[in-house]
Simulated scan of single mutants.
Amino acid sequence: MSKAFQRIGLIAKDGDERVATVLHALVALLDRRGLNHVLDQRTAAALPDWPHKAEDAETLAGDVDLIIAVGGDGTLLNTARVLAARPVPLVGINLGRLGFLTDIVASRAADDVAAILDGRFTRDMRHMLSARIEREGREAEADLALNDVVIQKADGGRMIEFETWVDDTFVSLHRADGMIAATATGSTAYALSGGGPILHPDVDALALVPICPHTLSDRPLVVPGNSRLRFVLRGDERTRAQLNWDGQKTHELIAGDRVELQRSKEKTTLLHPPGYDYFALLRSKLHWGRAQEEQVPR
């Protein structure tokens, strides 16, 4: 067993009856191994008669060696933002629909976590993004994202108009429903549904994907991962837009706001169980080759 993991944090999504089953199986595993464990308070509050210790997520993040996130990719994304100040390794157990980040299926949770506790895992470092809103020369809001930062219209009506700059070089003036700035991690999320490319996690790049652009030649653009991006919202008092980080946090934008975005010094560390294969994950989640009934070479 790896001596690196002696105190384990458990964070789970709300409102899913399967959570309790998975958590009890994990706690039984940890108890058998004599490892300390703690649940975050929000999760514990949703579980009737949970008998184990609970802490708020921020305190938990500073008090454990490993965190297991039980839920969908959204649960892991939110956990990654909470952990950003202290890069505790993350393990994801999938109770959601796709599970690009939470790659352990619930039926194998105890077995795969046991392997990770034994030191048999793949360590995967993922870049994060730092995005801030500047309004009239002052910072209005700032936060981190693992998947993507999105500027988008805030109502169901008019497009928004905004400038895009890369490293202080003007790229274009866009009229669209918005723009997705995605890391390689986020390239299989909102950016993919918007027609963007899939970037392998080892590729140090950002994908800029326009959302429903007015000009059909306004296509996705891949730029170096260390680029400094700036979006400037044009318009008037009728302009309604917003910025969101990983779909978890949203802040209003008004005409004249500048969104400054660049790679953060913080990173997210993911631990995958033995046998992890990124391309096998893509085949499974995106159903590649299913129609042709292709066989995987042996």
Rank of each mutant, 00 (worst) to 15 (best):
P89R: 02
G15V: 05
F121R: 03
A280R: 13
A291C: 06
F162V: 00
F231A: 05
N36T: 13
I93A: 06
D111H: 12
L144I: 13
G72F: 02
V91C: 08
G289R: 08
E136Y: 09
T21I: 13
A241K: 01
D257E: 08
Q41R: 11
D124C: 09
E134Y: 04
L95K: 01
L261R: 00
H52G: 13
T185P: 04
M179W: 00
W165L: 07
R108C: 14
L216M: 10
V171M: 11
L98R: 02
V22D: 01
Y190F: 13
P89A: 06
V296F: 12
L271G: 04
P273S: 09
D65I: 08
V22K: 01
R219C: 01
T269M: 11
D16G: 07
Y278R: 10
V222K: 02
P201H: 12
L129M: 11
K267T: 15
S193I: 08
P210K: 03
C212T: 09
V166D: 05
E136D: 15
G186Q: 05
G194E: 00
L271R: 07
G15P: 00
A182R: 02
A189K: 05
E17H: 08
Q292K: 14
E252K: 15
L98Y: 04
R126W: 06
V70C: 07
I104K: 03
A57S: 15
A291R: 13
H174P: 01
D277K: 14
H272M: 07
D40E: 14
P220V: 04
A140P: 03
I93Q: 02
I211M: 12
G194Y: 01
A110Q: 11
A44N: 09
A61T: 07
D73G: 07
N36V: 10
L98C: 05
L29R: 04
T122S: 14
V88F: 06
G96S: 10
R240S: 11
R126V: 03
A54P: 07
V113G: 02
A57T: 13
V22Y: 03
I116K: 04
K3G: 12
I180G: 00
V203R: 07
R135E: 05
V82Y: 11
N226S: 15
A46E: 11
G247V: 03
S284G: 15
P210V: 00
A280M: 10
R228L: 03
E136A: 14
G225P: 07
P87K: 03
N36W: 11
I198A: 10
N94S: 09
A131W: 00
D40F: 04
A255Q: 02
R32C: 14
L199E: 02
R234W: 06
P89V: 10
T21A: 09
A189P: 08
V203F: 12
T269G: 06
K13G: 06
A4P: 01
E260H: 12
R126F: 01
A12M: 09
M128S: 06
L233P: 00
P220L: 04
T169E: 15
V149C: 11
E134D: 15
L286Q: 05
L39T: 12
